[in-house]
């Protein structure tokens, strides 16, 4: 895993006691020197690499570590 992806993973793990899903802005804030669109590239690559996955309320999308979170189990998906 590259350095930038590790920053994201470390951040999410540091919060895992409270929550497993984050808005794009929460993750983009980890890269203050990057424009949002550059941060998007980093984060989307992590989706393709199956480190992160999306979660959607229908109107809003969030990001979390793949397979993490409580709702997963309750929906009976894997």
């Amino acid at each position: 895993m590259d350095e930038k992806a590790q920053i994201v993973v470390d951040f999410i793990k540091s919060k895992e006691k409270n929550k497993s899903k984050f808005y794009f802005k929460d993750l983009a804030a980890l890269f203050p020197d990057e424009k949002p669109r550059a941060a998007k590239k980093i984060i989307n690559k992590m989706i393709d690499d199956e480190i992160l996955e999306y979660w959607s309320s229908g109107s809003t999308t969030m990001y979390g570590l793949k397979g993490a979170g409580k709702q997963h189990d309750s929906e009976g998906e894997e």
Binding site: K19, S20, K70
Partner: peptide
Amino acid sequence: NMCEIPLAVAA
């Protein structure tokens, strides 16, 4: 068990 409470609060 079903939900992440911070998400419900933030919603």
